[in-house]
Design a protein around this nucleic acid. Structure first.
Lengths: 248, 248
DNA sequence: CGGTGAAATTGACCTGGGTCAAGGGGGCGC
DNA sequence: GCGCCCCCTTGACCCAGGTCAATTTCACCG
């Protein structure tokens, strides 16, 4: 560990301070729709943490809940262990997304959250945040909306979809989320190994691999290890069999 | 349909007005922990609706979101249809629970909600509620917590559990929720047919029936049509294989 | 009190996807 | 550059749970 005073002083010397105001993700993250003045109030409570190396844990099940975390860069995975010690992936988190929302109710983290590659987060101390939310209606509203959005995501995951529907739905979900972030929705690379995708979709790794191969043979997608191209979005949508698309 | 003016006048003649203050469910519902003064402010925005007959819809997918609904009596079911027109049950709602939370994000109801038997609800106009929440920190906090709690419920449903784990988990979940409401956690009756239970658990009706029969043979439970007795809670917990119990 | 229809159970059989096992690569440290 | 290890893919087989069909039970109703 480097001495903290050294870290602090080097951070202080940077000419451009990282703030919500100049953060490219502010339109996705908590401060959506806030004016500059409110953003500055939010800024003051945000704790911009040191980048985490790949496979480092941000928090673990059972730890006292203190902060929500916003992804600044990289990709994170939240998961639990079942009684037999098997991992259960609950979600992947892209930049601009808020993690730890399920810990609010019990006051204790309900998931382990781990960085899939090197990644940065902003910690939002929950007490301060909810206090501020009471003063800034748009902030309160945004937190309600983010919680509600997660409900819909879980509702999809909880549906009884076939393996094809799951894999197609997963790819389309990522595609949508990358588009929202200004990246290509047709070509992106998967931050996570097949094993994690399979676990998240409640399938075996082999099944995911087989479905991907099938989609490739049928010209729906093209893959090269973690690189994915979606060649036929309509075709994938057919396979995903969504019953309801949530409008932006 | 009876004329509404007649209904209104008969309601007005009641000597004891229904309010949150005298509602037995106030410790479960939104006003948990509010003082009398705040409860009265909440009272003013609550719209206590006429009881719904069995199988009547409270709201439907795609309708503009305006209110959250709190269950006052009876049992409700929320569900969607998939593209092939098959029903997908998402949740059952007992008295004191809040429905419609997943509609906040998109501003449009995401589920159909139907009364399983005759049931009453309070409508909470969302705009008024969130406005009030900004003024009453404990109310805001409670809404955050209720949303967060639903996340955990969906996370369980989304796990890949065996049929036995699902049925055991379902019975224990109901048991806990009945206990919280002051009813017996050992003997209760199911408001919903097996078909709905099976659909909710993403199983076939026949599978639910078989698992229930097995649990009965093994002395874990006793059933008589919709009546259920849980004879061995520990045994059921074994079968449910929870990885994490959410504390109160 | 018998008739009717939905709900529940039970049995026989089938299949989607899990499990087990055996290769291929590709990245990375030495 | 070489070897090691992990990731991914593919094939063969199996089983939990779905599907189909028959039967029983009960609530309701004339």
């Amino acid at each position: 560990m480097a001495s903290s005073s050294h870290c602090l002083s080097s951070a202080a010397h940077r000419s451009i301070r990282r703030t919500c105001v100049n953060c490219a993700l502010s339109e996705l993250c908590v401060p959506v729709g806030l004016d500059q003045q409110d953003m500055e109030r939010l800024d003051q409570l945000v704790d911009r943490q040191q980048p985490l190396p790949a496979n480092a844990h941000l928090c673990r099940v059972g730890e006292r809940f203190s902060s929500l975390y916003a992804v600044r860069s990289g990709c994170f995975k939240s998961y639990r262990m079942d009684r037999e010690g098997r991992e259960r992936v609950l979600a992947f988190h892209l930049p601009g997304e808020l993690m730890g929302l399920d810990a609010i109710y019990p006051g204790v983290y309900q998931s382990n959250i781990i960085a899939l590659d090197v990644g940065g987060v902003c910690a939002l101390p929950y007490n301060d945040l909810s206090h501020l939310a009471a003063q800034i209606p748009r902030l309160q509203e945004q937190i309600f909306r983010l919680l509600s959005k997660d409900l819909s995501a879980y509702a999809w995951l909880a549906g009884d979809h076939s393996a094809e529907e799951r894999v197609a739905g997963f790819l389309l979900d990522l595609s949508n989320r990358y588009r929202e972030r200004g990246y290509s929705d047709r070509a992106f690379n998967l931050a996570m190994p097949r094993r994690d995708i399979a676990n998240y979709l409640r399938l075996a790794t082999e099944t995911v691999s087989r479905v991907i191969t099938r989609f490739e043979r049928e010209g729906l997608i093209r893959t090269e290890r973690r690189e994915v191209q979606l060649l036929d979005l309509d075709g994938l949508n057919q396979r995903a069999n969504y019953c309801l698309q949530v409008s932006g």
